[in-house]
Amino acid sequence: MKNKVILVTSDVFGKGETELGETVMETFFTVLKQQLELPVAVFFMNRGVFCLTNQSMTSLHAKELQEKGVSVYACKTCVDYYGVENELTAGEISSMGHFVELAAKHEVITIS
Rank of each mutant, 00 (worst) to 15 (best):
G14E: 00
K15L: 09
K15V: 07
G16S: 08
G16M: 04
G16A: 07
E17H: 07
T18M: 06
T18G: 02
E19V: 05
E19S: 11
E19T: 04
L20G: 02
L20I: 08
G21M: 08
E22C: 00
E22K: 02
T23Q: 03
T23L: 02
T23C: 01
V24A: 09
V24T: 06
M25D: 01
M25K: 01
E26C: 05
E26T: 10
E26G: 06
T27P: 00
F28R: 02
F28Y: 15
F29C: 03
F29Q: 00
V31I: 14
L32W: 05
Q34N: 15
Q34K: 14
Q35R: 14
Q35G: 06
L36A: 12
L36N: 13
L36C: 01
E37K: 13
E37R: 08
L38D: 02
L38E: 09
V40I: 15
V40P: 00
A41V: 06
A41F: 07
V42L: 03
V42I: 15
V42S: 02
V42R: 06
F43V: 09
F44D: 05
F44H: 06
F44P: 00
M45Y: 13
M45K: 11
M45R: 09
N46K: 11
N46V: 11
N46R: 11
R47G: 00
V49S: 05
V49F: 07
F50Y: 14
F50E: 03
C51Q: 08
T53E: 10
T53D: 10
N54P: 08
N54A: 10
N54G: 11
N54C: 01
N54K: 12
Q55H: 12
Q55R: 14
Q55V: 01
S56P: 05
S56V: 00
S56A: 13
S56N: 07
M57F: 09
L60K: 10
L60H: 08
H61T: 04
H61W: 09
A62E: 04
A62K: 01
K63V: 00
K63G: 11
E64Y: 11
E64N: 10
Q66I: 01
K68F: 10
G69Q: 06
G69K: 06
V70Q: 06
V70F: 10
S71P: 00
V72D: 02
V72E: 03
V72G: 01
V72A: 10
Y73V: 04
Y73L: 12
Y73M: 07
A74C: 12
A74Q: 03
A74P: 08
A74V: 04
C75V: 05
C75P: 02
K76N: 12
K76D: 10
K76Y: 03
T77W: 07
T77P: 00
C78H: 00
C78Y: 01
C78P: 04
V79W: 04
V79D: 11
V79N: 08
V79C: 09
D80E: 15
D80T: 15
Y81E: 12
Y82I: 04
Y82F: 15
Y82C: 03
G83I: 12
G83N: 10
E85A: 14
E85K: 13
E85T: 13
E85F: 04
N86M: 07
N86H: 13
N86A: 14
N86D: 15
N86S: 15
N86T: 14
E87Q: 14
E87R: 12
E87I: 02
E87T: 07
L88R: 04
T89W: 03
E92L: 09
E92A: 10
I93S: 05
I93V: 15
I93C: 07
S94W: 04
S95W: 08
G97F: 11
G97Y: 12
